[in-house]
Amino acid sequence: MNVAIIDYGLGNLFSINNACKLVGLNTIITSDINKISKADALILPGVGAFGDAINSLNENNLTQTIYEFVRTGKPFLGICLGMQLLFSESEEFGSHKGLDLIKGKVVKFPTINKLGESIRVPQIQWNQIYAEDINRWNESPLKNISEGTYMHFVHSYYAIPEENNNILTYTEYEGIRYTSAVMKDNIIGIQYHPEKSAEAGINIYRNWANYIINKSY
């Protein structure tokens, strides 16, 4: 199975590529529209600024390519900033329009919590993931991973989906409960870095790889 990892000049693709190979997926790192369309599955990676990312996707005609890919029903995975880009808009350095594949917005962690204590931003730590709906969890790449498993997180912004049934996992940071993964049909978005979360993280890739082949979890 061939997975295209979109190369639009943002972020370090080594570890995502490495994780795909570990679970037996063939990868191609590309911004070539034809190669992306022919792939069996697609990954949108990304670190950095939301605005730069969406501009870069637009400039490379990748936005349309992503929409067409998603319409085919083939698996599409957004990781970290790639997850945030799935949403309608972000407030990062002014307001930016996102891909709008999932309704909702992306906001920044406050630097002070409700108790007046300061919060470290970005959140950089191993944090736990929980199921919004355990049935949904079991029909996703999270199946056979225990609730409360620790994953590696690095981010300053988080997504707020409009519809609860898009929420796959939630996580708490300094008293803020937020959505850490989303799923809608063939689209999955993951805020944390499974590729940097030891064996448990690789299991998410392994389950997703099985889904690419069997079209079911």
Binding site: G11, N12, V47, G48, D52, I124, H155
Partner: peptide
């Protein structure tokens, strides 16, 4: 930071 992202 602007080229590789703050978190890098």
């Amino acid at each position: 930071a602007s080229k590789f992202g703050s978190s890098t």
